[in-house]
Amino acid sequence: MPHDPIVFARDGSVARLRAIMAALRDPDSGCPWDIEQDFTSIAPYTIEEAYEVADAIEQQDWPALQGELGDLLLQVVYHAQMADEAGHFSFADVARAISDKMVARHPHVFGDESREKSAEQQVNDWEKVKAAERAARAQGGVLDDVALGLPALMRAVKLQKRAARVGFDWPDTAQVLDKIAEESAELVEARDTLTQAQVTEEMGDLLFVMANLARHLNVDPEEALRAANAKFTRRFRAIEAALAAENRRPEDSDLIEMDVLWNAAKAVEKGNAAG
């Protein structure tokens, strides 16, 4: 079939992107791979693209961010196209719903409420609106709409925040630290006496409490772990560089030597930070 002329318009409109996606999904003339996809098969790409957006932001790579935002936008268009084909909803429905939601959740911008609020108060107001929306959808449970597809660490924090809003929370970090000690002991016991499945369960319990500690300390555990990953990567690359200067690789070294090189890289980082 002839393609919609907008496909070749070379403009930046969402209409063009939607026309391209419709052409790719056309059962007679589209791309065989795109035609075969469904919500389940595309969902992992959606998650991956969101992380690549976050990675570009963390690296402050603005040209890369432009491209990654485009990739993420494509995911929205892809899901909306499949929904339209199935008669669930259209792209316009998606845009209308989020626009209505943003207006409703910002009465201090689009309504009569005062803008003289702290960020914390605005977050509290936001949560009240969301609670009312859940009630209107007959979602009675406190945890009902915490998405299952979130990364586990992020979901743990969201679950804990929801429970805390109805009083199910430790009052301070002391009790959380006690619980970490308890879960650590249980993990050691499981390692020594229990099955691998039970070890996995105890490891999950410990990670869940660690996420709770981060929440009590006002630390985003995802952000903290990303920073720790980046630190580990930098220092291990410093080990590789030091060994490469002697025409060696990590497998040509041993733990004692690499630990010395690690500490040297750590000292350099701390010196640079102090300077």
Rank of each mutant, 00 (worst) to 15 (best):
D4G: 08
P5G: 10
I6A: 04
I6S: 02
A9T: 01
D11E: 07
R16H: 03
R18T: 08
R18V: 05
A22K: 11
L24E: 06
D28R: 09
D28G: 12
W33R: 12
D34N: 11
E36P: 00
Q37R: 14
Q37S: 04
A43F: 14
P44K: 05
E48H: 06
A50F: 09
V53K: 00
V53R: 00
A54C: 10
A56W: 00
D61Y: 07
P63A: 02
A64W: 00
A64L: 11
L65F: 05
L65E: 00
V77C: 07
M82F: 04
D84K: 09
H88Y: 15
D93K: 07
A97G: 03
A97I: 09
D100I: 01
V103A: 10
V103Q: 11
A104E: 14
E113C: 03
E116Y: 05
K117C: 07
A119K: 11
E120C: 07
E120N: 00
Q122I: 11
D125L: 06
D125C: 01
K128V: 06
A132F: 09
E133A: 13
A136N: 08
A138D: 15
Q139W: 12
L143I: 12
V146Y: 00
V146T: 12
G149S: 15
G149V: 14
L153M: 15
M154Q: 14
K158G: 05
K161L: 12
K161C: 13
R162Y: 02
A164Y: 02
G167I: 10
D169T: 08
T173D: 09
Q175L: 14
I180N: 03
I180E: 01
A181G: 04
E182W: 06
L187V: 09
A190T: 06
A190I: 03
T193A: 10
L194R: 15
Q198A: 13
Q198D: 15
T200H: 05
E201M: 06
E202L: 01
G204W: 02
L206H: 04
V209C: 03
A211R: 00
L217P: 02
V219S: 10
P221D: 05
A224Q: 09
R226N: 08
R226H: 06
A227K: 11
N229D: 13
T233R: 09
R234D: 13
E240A: 08
A241I: 02
A241L: 06
R248A: 07
R248K: 12
R248C: 01
I256M: 06
M258I: 04
D259G: 02
W262E: 01
N272V: 13
N272K: 12
